[in-house]
Each structure stands twice: as C-alpha cells, then as structure tokens.
Write a protein that binds this DNA or RNA. Structure first.
Length: 317
RNA sequence: CGCGGAGUAGAGCAAUCGGUAGCUUGUUGGGCUCAUAACCCAAAGGUUGUAGGUUCGAGUCCUGCCUCCGCAA
C-alpha cells in the first residue's frame, strides 16, 4: 500500500521498519522538528529521522502538518499512519486518506500522552496496543485491532515501552494486511470507560512517602529511566533518585529490623541503612527497600555499593 | 563555546591552609566458631583521567584536552 508515516520518538521506529520489511510503499516519513540536544547544544535527529536515513526513505521535518495537506494529498496515499507523532491533526489533514494511529494501551483506557506509565502506576496485570482510526478527538477513534501483553512485576517504563513498540509494529502490519484484503471491522470505543493520561513532567517523580510502599515501588518502575522517582535527603538537601525497590510488608520485616530501628517512625524515615542489609524506608503503609539509587552527578548504583561510601541517616522528605 | 557536577586501589568514597594518599567493601593467606553476608590477624593492590604550568613541595592552585553524570523532553 501507499503509505505516509508520521512518527517522532523511538517508540515509532519498529513500526516504520515493519512497513519497509512488509514492502509497503513508503511515500514519505514525517517527524517533528529536531528538538533534543546533546550536552554541547547540538541538535540530535529524532529517532524516526535517524531510521529514515539508514533505510534511505524520503523524509520531512514539519512543525505543523496541517499546513501541508495539499502537498500530502498530491502523493495519493492509500493510508496515513501516525505513531507517537505529537501534533494535533485537523479536519483537512484527516480528509487526505484514512488515518490510523498506533496507541500503547488497551483503549478506551489511558488515552493521551503517557499510557505506558499509567498502566504500571495503576498496577495493571495487562496492557497492550490499540490500532484505531485517528479522529479529531484525542485517541477516541474506532478500534480496528487490539493485542494485549502481560505486565510483569519487574517491568519498568523502559522494558514495557520496548515490548510495546515491537508489539505495535506487529499489530500494525496485521491491520494493514486485513485492510488490503478488505475484511476489517471497526468497533466504536465505549466513551463511558475512557480514562485519560497527562504528559509526564519532571516533578511527577517526586515521592510522597505517605503512600504505600507498593504504590511507591510502582512509581519507581513507571518513571524509570525518566524522569525517575526522587526524594530529598533531609540531611544534605540533595535530591536522590531511585531506580529500583522492593515493597515489604511491615510484619514480615519487623523481625529482621527489630532492635535495629524504630518501625513506628514517621513516613520517609530511614529505618535501616547498611551495605550488608540495604536501605529501608518507612512508607505510609509498609516498608520500601531501595535496591538501586543515584546521588546528584553520580552513577546509578546498587544500594550495597552506594552505602559503602556514605551512610544514610535521618529521613527523606 | 547553553548551565552545573564529577574522575583518587577491583568497586564505592575520604583527604582541613598546598606538606607522610586513607576508610569501607572486595581479593589473597592465616586463625577462631555448632554456626552466618559473623569475628580476629596479616598481605597484596595507586604514575590521584590526560598533557602542560606555578611551587622547595600539587590529589589539592592555573590552562588545554578526554570521559562520565545532572538540568534542558
């Protein structure tokens, strides 16, 4: 099929590669303009742009595709595909040809910018990919196909993102195949069940120690590696980032910690800290054991190594 | 030249005014114990990222370069 592909970040790359592999005719690939910079301030190409250079595909950077609808129409595409593109699409654009979107959740759940993080935060057992029609209302179009995937208790944003981006590519090729054969059903979304997710910002990572250890552990996984869950170490005022942790029931740990610390302390208190046993922090419910963390300007370290060089006392706020 | 931090033993960190480079852990050897991620003794392990400069003397001060990290999503 004749396809115009719109995508920007890493998530979209496997889908684009799949189109090429399935020998669809990729008329044009469009990304947001390059925005990320390295430490020296040089602009970095978007992952999709980088991929097109490698695959030798026609490419265009564009900060508003609604202004080039005529040019796109002239290419006579059969279908337009958006994967994490990042621009609002207007009526003119959507009238060019059927437009499909690859979304990383089981819609109508988690519409919006951070579906992967949302599914981990909530503690869902499953999430998945939805291929749907792109309409003006965000992520609200009719569903063409869904495929689900288990969320493991060890999955972080990064691992789940990578799995879903591959699943997204596979699901997309399936839909295109069905579309070509002309036997595809469209199922409207149940608006009542729709939920929405916001764009993640830096401060989303701030830890509220009055939450349960389980909730905080999921927050750590959902925001690993970015923006990462963090908290202020009261003793020095430094922001410490947390990358992995284990939630323990208070009653199963009280034996281990007995005599070492006061498990009735306030939320955020460091109950125990030693290279041998690890780092334990009091939460609103139960106890969180931090297993890897990072001090400012330092590397991410397992807690055993982190605690060799410095002893943590007091509390996090 | 976007702003900031860092580089010291295998690993993680100290080193006050510029004056003997230490600590924890790991490794190796020995000892002890019913027993441990236990305890005791000993040893090995460093061109302090790199190239220069200042100095009687530089981990420390100055300049260039390399590498890593945070901010900027």
């Amino acid at each position: 099929m004749r396809i115009i592909f719109l995508g920007t970040p890493k998530f979209a790359v496997p889908s684009l590669e799949a189109l090429v592999k399935e020998k669809h005719e990729t008329l044009l690939v469009i990304s947001q303009p390059d925005r990320e910079t390295d430490r020296k301030g040089n602009l970095l190409p978007t992952p999709v742009k980088e991929c097109t250079t490698k695959l030798n595909l026609p490419f265009l950077s564009c900060d508003n595709v609604n202004q080039i609808t005529e040019e796109l129409k002239a290419l006579k595409p059969d279908v337009l595909i958006t994967v994490a593109f990042g621009q609002m699409l207007g009526d003119d654009f959507l009238s060019i040809a059927p437009t499909l979107n690859v979304h990383a959740s089981l819609l109508p759940l988690y519409r919006g910018a951070s579906p992967i993080q949302a599914s981990i935060l909530v503690g869902d057992k499953k999430t998945g990919i939805t291929i749907m029609q792109t309409v003006k209302k965000m992520d609200a179009g009719d569903i063409l196909l869904q495929r689900d995937i288990d969320i493991k208790t060890t999955d972080t944003y990064e691992t789940l993102h990578d799995k879903l981006s591959v699943l997204g590519a596979r699901t997309l090729t399936e839909v295109l195949k069905q579309l070509k054969e002309g036997n595809i059903k469209q199922i409207p979304q149940d608006e009542i069940k729709a939920t929405y997710t916001k764009k993640i910002i830096k401060t989303s990572g701030s830890i509220d120690w009055s939450k349960s250890a389980e909730d905080i552990e999921r927050q750590i996984r959902a925001y690993n590696p970015w923006p990462s869950a963090y908290s202020t170490y009261a003793q020095t005022g430094e922001i410490i980032k947390f990358y992995s942790a284990i939630a323990h029931k208070t009653h199963t740990l009280s034996d281990i910690l007995q005599g070492l610390s006061d498990i009735t302390a306030s939320n955020g208190t460091i109950l125990h800290s030693s290279p041998q046993n690890g780092l334990f922090i009091k939460c609103g419910l139960d106890i969180l054991q931090i297993t890897s963390l990072q001090a400012p300007s330092k590397k991410i370290l397992p807690s055993s190594e982190f605690l060799l060089g410095r002893n943590l006392i007091g509390k996090f706020e």
